[in-house]
Design a protein around this nucleic acid. Structure first.
Lengths: 272, 272
DNA sequence: TGTTGTTACGTAAGGCGTAAGCATG
DNA sequence: CATGCTTACGCCTTACGTAACAACA
C-alpha cells in the first residue's frame, strides 16, 4: 500500500473519474488504472465501482485513512524542510472564521479557512501560523484532530451566547445551560457559528440536531435568520452585538494559536 | 518518502545499527544503507549520525511522524481486511493495567499492555477489543491519541485517590483538589498508577514533577513506597484498599472500550 | 459510436544482492 | 586489524506510456 497509490486513489474518488484524476496528477489514465488495480489486488477487495466511479464500502473506509496519512507524510516533509532551510520571508496566517482576533491584524498575509484546513495547513507548512476556534470548558484545550504534533497556545477565551428570537421563552434569561437546548431547533452554520458537531462532542449528547443548514461566513445573515425564529445559533457573545441572546454557562469560545513544534529556522544544523 | 523507507528508518534507530535492522527486516545491510541514503537525499538533510548510529535533530523529528504514519497504514489495511474477511474465531482483548474491569473475565485471551499499545493494537487489528483507562472530568471522554478512527464507549468511571503517608499534612482530609498538589513530590508510575503526564495534561499545568520513577505493574509495591513517604501516587480509589488515601475532586478514573468502527464481518461485500 | 476504463507490451528506471572499498575505534 | 557503513555493478522487478481492446451509454 504505497503512499503514491493512496494519493491517486483519493484523487480518483474526488474527481469521480480515472481520466480527470490522471490529468490532475500528470499521469496517463492507464497509469491511474494500474494504480487502482494494484491497490485493489494488494487489499484483496474492490475499492471503486466503475461507471459511475464511486468508492465501495471498503473504499470509503480507506478514504478515511488515506487523507490523514497523506497529510501526515506532507507534515513530516514540511517540518524537516523548515528545520533545514532558512525561514520564509512571508508569513501566512490561517484563521478559522470565528478565530479572528486582534493579533491577526499585523500579519502580511491572512487566509480565512475552515477549521480543519487551518490545522492541516499549519501541519503541512502551507501556513506559518494558524488561529483556530472552538468550544470547551474554561481553560481546557480545544479538541483538534492531531494530524501532526503541533505547538498549541490559548489566545483568547470569550463567553458564548445563544441567539434567539425576542419572543422565545428563554429570551431575557440571565443565562442557559446548553444541555437544556439539546432538543431545540438549531441552525447548523459551521462557518459562521459553532458547528453543531462540536456542540455534540463537547456535551457528549446526540442532540443539537439541525433544522436548517447555513453555509458561508456571512454572520449578519445568520443572526437575522436566528432572530427571525428559524432556529438557534451559538456564537461568541462579542459577535452578537445588541441582538437578543442568552449567555451560556460552563462552555466558552476559545481561540488557539498553532505553529509547528520547531521554530522556523531554529535547527539549521550543518550551517556555519 | 516511501513508507517502506520510513519502516527501515525506525528499525535502524531502534536497533542503533544498520546491520541489525537489516537482519530484523530481512534485507542485506547494503539495502538498508541505500534506504537511508534515499531518505536523506529525498529530504536533503542527514537523518542519522553514523558510528554510533543515532538520529540527528531532523531524524528525531521524522521519527515522531514515522511511527504514527506506519500505524495508520497498518490500521487502514487491517480495517479493510476485517471488513472483507470472515471475523476471526479468537477474541483477543488488550487491557491497560488499571483498566481491568469485571467485563474482561469472560474473554478467552487477555493481554495487559501499556495504554498506547492498546490503542494501536485495536487500530491495527492485533487486538479485537481494547480497554484503556485514564483521567478526565466526569463524563468527558478520554484524550486518546487518534492514530485511527475507533469506536469508543465509556465503560466505568470511578473516583480517584491520592495515596500518601499517614503522617502527611493532608492525611485524613475528606478530599483534595489535585491542583493543590501540583508542587508535591510525586512518584511517576505510568504502569501501576496514573502517569504524571496525564495529570499535567488534564490539569493544564506543568507541575506534578516526579521525585522518583517506578516501573512495572506491581501495584502493592507502589502503594508501599507511597505510604512510606517516597512520593505521592494517584490511583483509582478501589485499588487503594484500606491504606491512607485522600479522594480527589473534579477528576475521575475512566475506562473506555475501543473497537474498530466497523463491526467484524459486517461489510462482507461480494459474498453471496 | 463516443467516451472511458482495461489489457498488452516495450522501454526505462529503481531496488536489491554480491562484493569490493573505506573509515573508525 | 576488525567491525560496520558505503559504493559499484549486475540482475531482476516494477512502473510508466503507447496503443489496441472492451464495455457501457
Amino acid at each position: 500500500m504505497d503512499a503514491h497509490l493512496l494519493r491517486t486513489f483519493v484523487a480518483v474518488t474526488r474527481c469521480g473519474s480515472f481520466s480527470r484524476a490522471a490529468d490532475e496528477l500528470g499521469y496517463t489514465q492507464s497509469a491511474v488504472s494500474q494504480h487502482i488495480a494494484a491497490l485493489e489486488s494488494d487489499l484483496g477487495t474492490p475499492l471503486l465501482s466503475r461507471r459511475p466511479v464511486q468508492p465501495t464500502a471498503a473504499g470509503r473506509r480507506l478514504l478515511e485513512h488515506a487523507g490523514p496519512i497523506l497529510v501526515r507524510l506532507a507534515a513530516a516533509r514540511a517540518e524537516i524542510t523548515r528545520m533545514t532551510q532558512a525561514p520564509p520571508d512571508r508569513l501566512v496566517v490561517g484563521v478559522s472564521p470565528l478565530a479572528f482576533v486582534p493579533e491577526v491584524v499585523g500579519a502580511n498575509h491572512v487566509r480565512v479557512l475552515p477549521r480543519v484546513e487551518v490545522v492541516t495547513g499549519v501541519a503541512q507548512g502551507t501556513l506559518d501560523l494558524g488561529l483556530v476556534d472552538g468550544i470547551t470548558a474554561p481553560s481546557d484545550p480545544l479538541n483538534l484532530p492531531d494530524v501532526a504534533p503541533l505547538a498549541k497556545a490559548g489566545v483568547a477565551e470569550r463567553p458564548l451566547a445563544v441567539v434567539l428570537p425576542a419572543d422565545h421563552p428563554l429570551a431575557g434569561r440571565k443565562h442557559v445551560k446548553l444541555a437544556d437546548l439539546a432538543d431545540a431547533q438549531w441552525i447548523d452554520a459551521p462557518e459562521s457559528a459553532i458547528p453543531l458537531a462540536q456542540l455534540r462532542a463537547a456535551s457528549g449528547t446526540t442532540g443539537f440536531r439541525a433544522a436548517l443548514r447555513y453555509e458561508g461566513t456571512h454572520v449578519p445573515g445568520l443572526l437575522e435568520m436566528a432572530t427571525a425564529g428559524h432556529g438557534l445559533a451559538l456564537l461568541p457573545q462579542t459577535m452578537v452585538g445588541g441582538l437578543p441572546a442568552v449567555p451560556v454557562t460552563r462552555l466558552v469560545h476559545r481561540v488557539e494559536r498553532l505553529t509547528m513544534p520547531t521554530q522556523p529556522g531554529s535547527g539549521r544544523s550543518g550551517v556555519r
